[in-house]
Amino acid sequence: MKYEYNKEPELYTPIMMRVISKRDLTPDVRFFQLVPKEEFKHLDMDYKPGQFMMLSLFGTGEAPFSISSSPTRKGIFEFAIRETGKLTNKIFELKDGDMLGLRGPFGNGFPIERMLGKDIIIVAGGLGAAPLRSLLLYIMDNRELFGRLIYLYGAKNVDDMLYKPDFVEMLDSEQIELFLTVDKGNEGYEDSIEEGKVTHLFKYVNDIDPANTIACVCGPPGMYKFVVTEILKYNLEKDKILLNLERRMKCGCGKCGHCIIDYRYTCIDGPVFTYWDVIHMRELI
C-alpha cells in the first residue's frame, strides 16, 4: 500500500527554543519569552490567536500551553504558565538561556476572518487572560480592522491579576473599553479595579448590536455557564459566542485521544468552540 505523505517534519518532534526573559505575573504565574534556537529557520512561524503549543522539557514531559503572544509580533513566543505540577515546577526552574522544546501550533484558534469588522467582547477569568492576550494584542495591532473592543477581566484578587500594570495603563485608552474586577480586596486599586465577580461587569456593556458582535470567553471551567448567561441577554446568536476550553492532551494533533469530547477533538476542532457546539455536545463545559 502506498500513501503520499510528507516525511518531514516529524509530528512529534519539537523545535528547540531558548528562554530570553521571564518575569512573575502573579505569585504562581510566570511569563516566559522564547526565541527559536535556530532563529533563521522558525522566526516567521505563523499561528493564530487562541492556538496552543506543546511545551516540552526533556526528562520531565510535555503539556499544552496557550500562546500569549500575538502573530502580529513575530519572532518571540510568549507563554504565561501557572505552577501546578511536575512539568510546570521544572519550567519555573528555567533560567535565561535555557532550552525547551516547542511543538505546534495546534488547534483551530479564534476565527479571525469571521471577526473582522465586528464589535468584540472579550471576557477573561483568571489565567484565561493568557490566551486572550494573544487576541487582544492582535486586535490592538490591527485596530482599524475591528469595531468596538470591550474587555472584561475578573481575577480572584489583586495579586492574581495577570498583566495588571498593562491593563491599568490601558484603562485610559480610547481604543478599548476595559473593565477590571477582583472577587475580593481591591486595596490600592480602588479607582481602577472593582470588587465582585466578572459577571458583575456586564452592567457597563451597553448598546450592543447583536448582529455585529462576537464574544470571546476564556476562564476556569466553572465560569463559562455564568458568563454565557449574561452574554445571551444581549441576544447574541449562539455561534457568535466563542469559548476557549481546556483538556488533557498528550499529542496535540488528534492522535492520542485524551481530549476527545463526543466526536470532536479539542486539539483539532478546538480549543475554541462556539456556544452552539457546547450545547449540542455533552461534557464540553
Binding site: 512529534y12 526533556f58 526528562g59 520531565t60 514531559g61 510535555e62 498528550k250 499529542c251 492522535k255 492520542c256 485521544g257 485524551h258
Partner: peptide, 10 residues
C-alpha cells in the same frame, strides 16, 4: 482503539 500516552524516562 488508538489512545496512547507519552512520558519521558531518564
Amino acid at each position: 482503539c488508538t489512545c496512547f500516552n507519552i512520558i519521558d524516562d531518564l
